[in-house]
Amino acid sequence: MKKLMKKNLSTAAIALLLLCVADLPGRSEVQYAGIAPNPAAPVRTIIDKRPVLHAEGIKFGAYDPHGDFGAQANVATEALFLPWEDVDLETLRVADAYAQARGRRNLLITVEPWSWDVDWRLTSAELRAKVLRGDYDVNMRAIAQMISALKSPVIVRWGQEMEDKSGRFSWSGWNPQDYITAYRRMMDIVRQEAPGTELMWSPKGEPGLQAYYPGDDYVDLVGLSVFGLQRYDELAYNEHRTFSEALKQGYDLVAGYGKPIWVAELGYEGGDAYMKPWIETATLKQSAFPNLQEVVYFNDRDVHAWPFNLGRPDWRVVKSLAN
């Protein structure tokens, strides 16, 4: 088994770049529903597309390796992604201090059960066998022990988007019972080493996710992934989807569990007319989603290419003036 090795994470970047939020009038998302796609190139003048934070709205958090939200108030959660191999766990202390200094309420730690070095990655079958055999218990235990020493309240999100069939993640598409066994094994370790840590079960939001539900005792929060890419919507749906339309399928599939629901990963990209509804409504409380408690923006370029040869979308809120 490969041991934990040192590699710095860009979790708590210190850059404090802030640009003004676009001056957008308050509107209901209903006004944008059903907008027909325009085949012409989208007009883009917005250089800062961060979501509008509404008073009395949904709480907001961010995965922010560039530090674009570093000086922004009302960011409840600092999110980070952590492979369980080739990582320096001391970076968790850095993220904790960063969050504490900025008054962030939570750390949301997504633990990805692989290495970020593609040359180290196992096949899906190899990874499944080793996890179920207990070969990676020591990795998870080391992470949980470090979590127990942090000052911030922590939420652990392990093996996200498990029902996805695209092959994006080595742990996605496993036999549901194998995934449930692995998830419970890892979360039992978290509970042993870091009592009080909340557990987030985080499907992508696709049909079939119910088969992967590990049981109420192993879920404190449910996290979904919600992304909006204009050109993808045009090719896949022949229409522009709003935030509510993109969220609805996954939300409806998990609402019956009665758990607090988060959008654990949020991102959008396109022209002004496409993005404005997302910017204005992502943190707006809506009666259709009564259990939605927080949205967490993924403030970086996607690490995977999208279908239709669309490449890796850039979800980052600040658009370079040089582009």
Rank of each mutant, 00 (worst) to 15 (best):
W84E: 13
A95R: 08
D86E: 15
P83L: 05
D96F: 02
P65N: 08
D48P: 00
I46Q: 01
H54L: 10
L82C: 13
F60N: 12
V87K: 02
W84D: 15
D96M: 04
G61H: 07
K49I: 01
H54S: 04
W84N: 14
R93D: 15
E90W: 03
F60M: 14
F81P: 02
L53C: 09
A73R: 00
A79H: 14
E56I: 01
A73G: 11
V75K: 04
H66R: 10
D68N: 15
Y63C: 12
G57D: 13
A76L: 04
E90K: 11
V94F: 07
D64K: 05
R50G: 07
W84Y: 13
E78N: 04
A62R: 05
L92N: 13
F60T: 12
P51R: 00
F69P: 06
V94N: 11
D48G: 00
I47W: 00
F69K: 06
I46R: 00
F81N: 07
D96V: 10
A95Q: 14
I58V: 15
D64A: 00
E78L: 08
F69R: 04
A71W: 01
D96G: 11
P65F: 01
L82I: 12
W84F: 14
D64P: 09
L82M: 10
D96P: 10
V87S: 08
A62N: 08
D88N: 15
V87W: 06
H54V: 08
A76Y: 05
G61K: 06
P83C: 05
F60V: 10
L92C: 12
A76S: 15
E78K: 09
I58F: 04
A73V: 04
E90G: 12
I46C: 00
A71T: 07
D64H: 08
A73S: 12
T91G: 06
A95N: 11
L53H: 08
T77I: 07
I58Y: 09
D48A: 03
D88W: 11
Q72S: 04
A73E: 14
D88V: 01
V94Q: 14
E56M: 10
T91L: 03
E78Y: 04
A55F: 03
T77Y: 04
P65D: 01
A79L: 03
Q72Y: 02
K49W: 01
I58W: 02
A55I: 07
L53M: 11
G61F: 04
F81Q: 10
R93G: 15
T91M: 05
K59T: 12
T77G: 04
D68E: 09
V87I: 15
T91Q: 13
A71E: 14
P83I: 08
L89M: 10
F60C: 13
N74T: 04
V87A: 12
V52C: 03
T91D: 15
D64G: 11
G57K: 09
R93N: 14
V52E: 08
H66M: 10
D88R: 03
H54N: 05
T91P: 00
